[in-house]
Write a protein that binds this DNA or RNA. Structure first.
Lengths: 165, 165
DNA sequence: TTCAAGTGTCTTGACATCAAGATATTGCGA
DNA sequence: TCGCAATATCTTGATGTCAAGACACTTGAA
């Protein structure tokens, strides 16, 4: 089936036949799909009275395992936001009693962010819902195709994730 | 090579062995890669004194072909933003003399947004730069792999693009 | 010991985005 | 013809994000 990127690429080939626009076949689809996923996540989380950004922070801490705490810096690399954004997020989650700030005992510049019991519950509840939604979206693909897709995407993300970018 | 999503999935399997987190292998990579691409685009466009959102609007109009005009509604489906956002974008681009608003002769509710000569130049210049950057990122993949990746992604985006979502 | 560079977090101000609703126009059905 | 739902765009108010820089602490070299 045709998608919006097929139309976009065809339009460029008509308007700018001098350019090779083949890279857009991959990367425009990545960007557009991510926007669609954001919208779908926002709607799904609304049932839990949770914003996507809250989910990102709470589940990062949940994944860390007991005692469910990370430094703001570690949260930055997981969520790909800037430090100012993370400070703001931690402030708001603290007000809602989902996380708390603790001094880092080993570095007096540092802080640790810890999940509260309530925050842990929210993280666990919302993860299951997200996975259900994602399974529905991926229903288009066979098991084999998903593996293939994951592998190809890993080749693109690995340089960003490993060479500090 | 391992990426951040491999670590993320491993952490979930340790903390929540009861859940099947396989969907994250694909969709978390899509979201994270899109964020990396946003950052890279922002840096690349800064050389042209252009914001990513300006690029999106100007190139949508450029692709339309002469006379380089679309309705705000058509721009919405291409850029995946809300109507309020688009109104705001058109206002700002108008102030910079990159686009202009015209009344739609066939529907008095409607408006047409048209690229100025200056706007068209900006679109053409920045597209070439973006393609160079994207080619560098895709250097990881063979020609065959890019085709495969584009095809798999199309299967995921087509439902969003065709069934109005 | 001391100082300079590096690191980790927070503050600030500008700005882009969204959701919801207002306004104007069209066009279908009775 | 009339009225009402649908359509197209804009307005409003709240909020999240970013870039840049400030501040406090740490580390390593002289």
């Amino acid at each position: 089936m045709e998608d919006e990127v097929d139309r976009l690429v065809a339009a460029w080939r008509r308007e700018r036949p001098d350019l090779d626009v083949e890279p857009l076949e991959v990367l425009s689809r990545v960007s557009r799909l991510a926007r669609h996923l954001d919208r779908a996540r926002r709607i799904a989380f609304a049932e839990h009275h949770l914003e996507p950004w809250e989910f990102d922070v709470l589940t990062s801490l949940r994944r860390a395992g007991p005692p469910y705490q990370l430094s703001p810096g570690q949260l930055l690399t997981q969520t790909l936001v800037t430090s100012g954004t993370m400070t703001n997020r931690i402030d708001r989650l603290t007000k809602k009693n989902l996380v708390e700030r603790l001094p880092d005992p080993s570095d007096r510049r540092g802080v640790l962010v810890r999940l509260t019991a309530e925050g842990r519950d929210k993280a666990d509840q919302s993860l299951a819902g997200l996975l259900d939604q994602e399974r529905a979206i991926l229903g288009e693909l066979s098991r084999h195709q998903r593996g293939e897709l994951a592998g190809l995407l890993r080749q693109l993300t690995a340089p960003f994730d490993n060479i500090p970018g």
